[in-house]
Design a protein around this nucleic acid. Sequence first.
DNA 1: GGTGTTGTTCGATAGTTGTCGAACAAGGGT
DNA 2: ACCCTTGTTCGACAACTATCGAACAACACC
Lengths: 101, 101
Amino acid sequence: MEPHEPDLTDVPVTTVLAALADDVRLQIVRALVEGGEATCGSFDFGVSKATRSHHLKVLREAGLTRTRAAGTSRLVRLRRDELDKLYPGLLDAVLGTRTPA
Amino acid sequence: MEPHEPDLTDVPVTTVLAALADDVRLQIVRALVEGGEATCGSFDFGVSKATRSHHLKVLREAGLTRTRAAGTSRLVRLRRDELDKLYPGLLDAVLGTRTPA
DNA sequence: GGTGTTGTTCGATAGTTGTCGAACAAGGGT
DNA sequence: ACCCTTGTTCGACAACTATCGAACAACACC
């Protein structure tokens, strides 16, 4: 299948925000910020692998991540450079917070 | 009715992001940033007043705006100070962008 | 070739959300 | 008192989304 990793500048802001507006996906992003590149399987946040795959697709199609094949696994990484360039401060603001109610 | 304007720190990040992840609501926020306080009716972005009222409710309950009565109108304003304190850079990052595809 | 691991895709389903018109409520004029 | 303006609330409806199990594909390894 085609990876379908759009250029961030082609993605509406609302799509980027919507991609980040989910708890599971935020946890994935947090893990990527801390751990760098990671396999899809490493994001076990209490959801099935079908759901996990779905969330990774949402992040990818929002231009937030890149995925490359590595054997039978896939390595995902955050496109932080582009993100910080286009939306400076966004990621820090979103991640640099405690988790309230 | 109770205004129900929660403290921003009580609102999950995902709720804040979801509130901003809509085109109509982003236009409202943009208008508030530029124009300061404004009446609900001034946000005519091609939606009915029922829909507009709904969006303003979403913003209010996400802790992003405050509403006060003024005669038959209601004045809405952005809680920018609190927003910038809790999520520094978020608003600038979200608003300081062109509108792609 | 067979088996196991890793992901993706395909329905299906339940829940959420954006949208509207119509009804309602609260004020301000006159 | 009457009407008009301004908003909110109430269904209703369509569209989207998060979730799952099961089926499938790709690869590694024995």
